[in-house]
Simulated scan of single mutants.
Amino acid sequence: MASKAPLDIPGAEAKLRAYLQAHAPELGALKEASKFSVGQSNPTYKLAMDAGDFVLRTQPLGDLLKSAHAVDREHRVMQALGQSDVPVPPMVLACEDLEVLGVKWFVMGLVQGSTLTDPQLPDHDAAMRRHIYEAQLDVLARLATTDPGQLGLSDYGRPSGYLERQLHVWTRQYRASETQHMPAMEELISKLPGMLPLEQHKAVVVHGDFRLDNLLVDGQGDVQAVIDWELSTLGPPLVDLSYWCTMLRMDQSWPIAGLGGVNLSALGIPNEQELVAQFAHKTGLEIPDDWHVWVAFHCFRFAAILQGIAKRVSEGNASADNAANVATQAKPMAELGAEILAKGAH
């Protein structure tokens, strides 16, 4: 069961209304706030204001894991990327005063576009499917060539050691949210430290959760905005590509579905080899021989994220309506990673 969100607390909406009137008077009065049902981590609301519709994104209530639910970082990185050719929503204001809603939060513009949750894109024809995937790849290539220094983000993360830090952070997060013993996860935690790829390129802005359902896509199949930057930092330019490919390897039957077991050519969707080759062509980056280790690493990382959802479900503090179902994916995700490591580059 989903827990109370910040605006469920008596008096919270009145505090929000007063704060917006004082700090963003150009928006006019708040007429209605309605919570989006999707989103596993940070409660997100549509705000109907006199000036139009906007989006409120908040941390969840309750005890938060260290470095999790970093909506302040989300606001900062999107504000900076607004200067670049990576499409993001326009930022309005951010608030770290816990006296207002009890959590950190920010408001951004509402970008028109659809969130596509099924990677098979059943409501589109083959030509449009290919266009959407290539549009996503184009945005990813732009992100992978960002210059953090030019965007004022040189201190947004450390310039090197991303993979080692992520392995440490998500091992710690996994241990803090562990609710069952998963042998495959233990295998990944044991083997990955000795196999992590060398970081051979200058750090770029990394989204950290770059997949289809974190994009807003218009009716022509073009990406209008990349959203959900909670896990963003600085890191190697292959991070988001390898993560996206990991997401696509997930089985088509899982709660968060991938394209595993799908006839891609019949659907007109580019396969992983095509996407990786196009990315290399667009960015000039070379794809390493240990690509499978990158993918296995992301299986571990995503399994740890899913386990965090499982922990919130067990504590009654989950944000999304489908959180309990999504949480069951942690175990098969870890098993996929262990299988990829065992098979190696073959």
Rank of each mutant, 00 (worst) to 15 (best):
D85S: 13
H281A: 14
A24I: 01
A296M: 09
E74K: 02
H292M: 07
P43W: 08
P193D: 02
W244D: 11
G337K: 06
R57E: 10
L198R: 14
K35E: 15
P236Y: 09
K191N: 14
W294Q: 01
Q329R: 08
V313K: 04
Q307N: 15
D213F: 05
A266K: 10
L264I: 03
D125K: 01
E272P: 00
A29F: 04
D251C: 01
V169H: 14
L267G: 07
S84F: 07
Y174N: 06
T117D: 12
H69M: 05
T246I: 03
D97C: 03
L61E: 07
V217E: 09
E274L: 00
H23Q: 15
L16K: 11
S314M: 02
R312H: 11
R175Q: 12
L216W: 04
E187R: 14
A266C: 02
L98E: 15
G28L: 03
N317Q: 15
V139N: 07
I305V: 10
E178D: 08
L7V: 00
L275A: 06
D209V: 04
R17W: 10
Q224K: 12
S3N: 10
P197L: 02
E286A: 13
F279A: 02
P237Q: 07
H298R: 04
L231M: 15
Q329W: 07
A345P: 02
Y45W: 12
V86R: 06
P87K: 08
E272T: 00
V276G: 00
L151Q: 14
C95F: 03
E230Y: 13
P332Q: 13
P60C: 04
H298Y: 10
T115H: 04
Q112V: 04
L215N: 05
R165T: 15
L116E: 13
G308P: 12
P25S: 08
L7P: 03
G113T: 02
L196G: 03
I305Q: 02
R211C: 06
P197E: 02
A277N: 07
P183S: 07
L110I: 00
G208K: 05
L285Y: 12
M185H: 07
L248M: 15
V217F: 08
A324W: 12
E164D: 09
L81D: 04
R312E: 11
A2H: 15
W105N: 01
H69F: 09
A318F: 08
R57A: 09
D53V: 06
K66S: 13
A68W: 01
G316D: 06
L20M: 12
P193F: 05
F210S: 00
H181M: 09
A327Q: 12
L98D: 12
A334Q: 10
H207N: 14
L264G: 03
H75N: 11
D50S: 13
P270T: 05
D8N: 13
L27A: 06
A22I: 01
M128S: 11
L116I: 01
G208P: 11
Q273P: 01
A33W: 09
G149H: 09
H131Q: 13
